[in-house]
């Protein structure tokens, strides 16, 4: 169980004060937990605090009774932690087996036989047994991510923190990775931080949405989806003109009769041809961001 109370983090950089986290309150139970939010929302900062790498400016974070504001608490949490950072740096001249073995040593797996078994197990789990002796520098982006998750799992952690794990992966790798995370969450707490809504929808039953350092939603993907009910439409336009009037275009589909827009907003009364549709999780997320006054940045 993770209890986060009034957690705040302030950075001072280039004479500027940045409030990365503004009084976060969260309780995270074992299983899969999703942390969703736009870039710069404070997700990585929160992940780093929970991993014991960064210090909170105020408030507290307690993991299984270990207070992360103390050195002893940090060390205890790190002993039970698997961590996959957003920017995964590795020793490219090592093979996957060597790298995971080295991380196992750093995590305290001192018995060589037990360590070798664990390394074999996690390499098998991520499907890298065949390529385990190849140098990491010769791996694809997806394979490197798999090495990353293997090192995170090598100490059989009870807390797994993965920050933007599917960034840069092809669709097939992404699906494989999501399934792996779901399987892993059966017997541990997995915190998945991402700005990709689909990743959360496919994996989590519990999530929080973070924006500008604050939790603006806490609940299930179904609840987030329901929040957009009555605020999502499709509209087919034949001309080049795009719908406006405080409507956010979520997607465009080019059809023979024109362009079909999927729209999210408070009202589509100005477009009588607009048809209300069932919302999806992404609609719910965009509606939440719009409704809470945060800027929604989508490609147009």
């Amino acid at each position: 169980m993770i209890t986060i109370t009034s957690l705040a983090k302030t950075y001072h950089t280039n004479g500027r004060t940045v409030h990365a986290l503004n009084g976060i309150d969260l309780e995270i139970k074992p299983g899969m937990f999703g942390l969703l939010g736009p870039n710069g929302a404070g997700k990585t900062t929160l992940m780093r605090i929970l991993a014991g790498i960064a210090n909170a400016s105020s408030g507290s974070a307690v993991v299984d009774g270990h207070d992360l504001s103390t050195d002893a608490g940090k060390r205890a949490v790190k002993s039970m932690l698997g961590y996959l950072p957003q920017e995964l740096g590795m020793y490219l001249e090592l093979s996957a087996r060597q790298f995971v073995d080295y991380m196992a040593i750093l995590k305290g797996l001192d018995d060589p036989r037990q360590r070798a078994q664990q390394v074999d197990r996690v390499l098998d789990l991520v499907g890298l047994t065949q390529d385990a002796e190849r140098k990491i520098k010769n791996y694809s982006g997806g394979m490197k991510r798999r090495v990353g998750i293997a090192q995170a799992l090598v100490n059989d952690p009870s807390l797994l923190i993965v920050d933007e794990p599917t960034a840069g992966l092809d669709p097939e790798e992404r699906i494989r990775f999501r399934n792996l995370l779901v399987n892993l969450s059966a017997k541990r707490t997995v915190i998945l931080s991402t700005h990709i809504v689909e990743d959360i929808g496919q994996t989590c039953q519990d999530l929080a949405v973070l924006a500008q350092g604050q939790v603006i939603f806490r609940g299930s993907p179904v609840e987030l989806t329901k929040a957009a009910a009555g605020h999502v439409w499709t509209l087919t336009c034949s001309g080049l003109e795009k719908p406006d009037h405080d409507l956010t275009v979520l997607s465009m589909l080019h059809l023979a009769e024109g362009t079909q827009y999927r729209l999210v907003g408070p009202s589509a009364a100005d477009y009588p041809a607009a048809k209300e549709v069932q919302p999806g999780l992404e609609d719910g997320y965009v509606w939440l961001m719009k409704n809470s006054g945060h800027r929604v940045e989508l490609l147009s």
């Binding site: 991993a51 790190k78 961590y83 920017e87 740096g89 020793y91 991380m103 750093l106 305290g108």
Partner: peptide, 12 residues
């Protein structure tokens, strides 16, 4: 150290 963040996340 390319893996400095991973190293920091260990109890070393």
């Amino acid at each position: 150290d390319p893996a400095i963040e991973l190293r920091f996340a260990t109890p070393i």
